[in-house]
C-alpha cells in the first residue's frame, strides 16, 4: 500500500524480507535482554506497519509470535542453533509488540513489550495424553528436587561451590513417580568440598553460570537423583545498549551473548 492514503503508514507483506529483518532484530533483542528463562525464536509475524520518520528513517511497528527454545538465556549457544521446545515438552509461546527503527540501513529497537504463556493443558493432551505438564516452580516437590540435585552436583564437584540462580522449568511425572527440573546455577567463591554454610558464599565477580537438568525418582524408602550440569565459560560483563525509555539490568545479559562462545563443559550425569 503506497504512502499518502491518510493513514501515514504503509503495510508491508509479513513475509517481506525487510519485515523479516526487523522481526529478527526484535527476536535478537528479546534474547539479549531476557534475564531468566529460555531463549526464544521467531515463529510468525502477525502484523506490520511502517511509518515514515522525520527527518529520516522508518519505524516498523511489528507484532510477532515467538516460541521458547531449549537454550537457557545464560547458555552462550547462538539462538540460531537452539531447537524449539516441542509440544510434547509443553511448549511456551511469546506475543510481542515492537517498534524497530530502520535508519541508514541499520535496524534498532525503540520499544518492546512481550508476554509469554505456556500451551494449554488441553493442547498438550491432544498430542500426548501421558506427557507431564509444567508444574509451578514453587511446588514443594520441585523445590525439593532442585535442592537434592544441587547438593548432589556440589558433592561430586571438586571446584567452586555452585549456588542456585533460578528454577527454570519443572514437570511432575506420575509413572515412575518422579520430578524433572531444569535450573540455572552460578559459581561462588567457596570450594564445594569445604562448604558448611552456603549462605556465606558469594557469586564470583566474573560470573560463571551453569545449567542443570535433573530427575528425582521416588523409591520405596528413598529417592534417586540424577543430575547433569553444563558449566558455561566465564564471561566479562559488558554494558548493553538500551532503547529509549527502557531500563533493563544488563549484568546477566551480557554474559549470555558472547560473539563467539567458547565450548561449555558438561559435568555429569551424576547419580
Amino acid at each position: 500500500v503506497p504512502l499518502g492514503l491518510g493513514l501515514g503508514y504503509k503495510e508491508l507483506n509479513c513475509d517481506d524480507p525487510e519485515t523479516e529483518q526487523a522481526a529478527l532484530v526484535a527476536v535478537d533483542y528479546i534474547n539479549s535482554n531476557l534475564l531468566q528463562g529460555y531463549k526464544h525464536t521467531l515463529n510468525q509475524i502477525d502484523k506490520v506497519k511502517v511509518w515514515s520518520r522525520r527527518p529520516m528513517g522508518e519505524v516498523f511497528e511489528i507484532e510477532i509470535d515467538t516460541l521458547e527454545t531449549v537454550c537457557h538465556v545464560l547458555d552462550p549457544t547462538p539462538s540460531a542453533n537452539c531447537s524449539v521446545r516441542q509440544l510434547r515438552q509443553h511448549a511456551v509461546e511469546g506475543d510481542c509488540d515492537f517498534r524497530v527503527l530502520k535508519q541508514n540501513g541499520q535496524f534498532s529497537v525503540l520499544s518492546a513489550k512481550c508476554d509469554s504463556s505456556p500451551d494449554s493443558a488441553e493442547d498438550v493432551r491432544k498430542v500426548c495424553p501421558s506427557c507431564p505438564l509444567l508444574a509451578p516452580l514453587n511446588d514443594t516437590k520441585v523445590v525439593h528436587a532442585v535442592d537434592a540435585a544441587l547438593a548432589a552436583f556440589n558433592a561430586r564437584n571438586n571446584g567452586s561451590y555452585f549456588q542456585l540462580v533460578e528454577v527454570s522449568r519443572a514437570q511432575l511425572v506420575p509413572l515412575p513417580a518422579s520430578t524433572y527440573v531444569e535450573f540455572a546455577v552460578a559459581a561462588t567463591d567457596c570450594v564445594a568440598q569445604d562448604v558448611t554454610d552456603p549462605a556465606v558464599c558469594n557469586m564470583l565477580a566474573e560470573k560463571q553460570y551453569g545449567f542443570c537438568k535433573s530427575t528425582l525418582t521416588e523409591k520405596l524408602g528413598g529417592e534417586d537423583v540424577a543430575v547433569t550440569c553444563t558449566v558455561f565459560p566465564t564471561q566479562p560483563v559488558l554494558p548493553q545498549p538500551q532503547p529509549d525509555g527502557i531500563n533493563i539490568p544488563s549484568s546477566m545479559v551480557s554474559s549470555a551473548t558472547p560473539e563467539s562462545p567458547p565450548d561449555a563443559v558438561v559435568v555429569g550425569p551424576l547419580v
Binding site: 507483506n13 513475509d15 523479516e20 510468525q44 502484523k47 509440544l87 493442547d123
Partner: peptide, 27 residues
C-alpha cells in the same frame, strides 16, 4: 467480474499479506 474474451481473469482468493508464515507450529 467481467473479462474481455480471450483475456485471462485472475481467480481465487486474494492473498493476504499478514499474518506471515508459521515457521514451527501454532499454539
Amino acid at each position: 467480474t467481467v473479462g474481455q474474451p480471450g483475456v485471462a481473469v485472475a481467480a481465487g482468493p486474494v492473498v493476504r499479506p499478514c499474518p506471515g508464515r508459521i515457521r514451527h507450529f501454532k499454539i
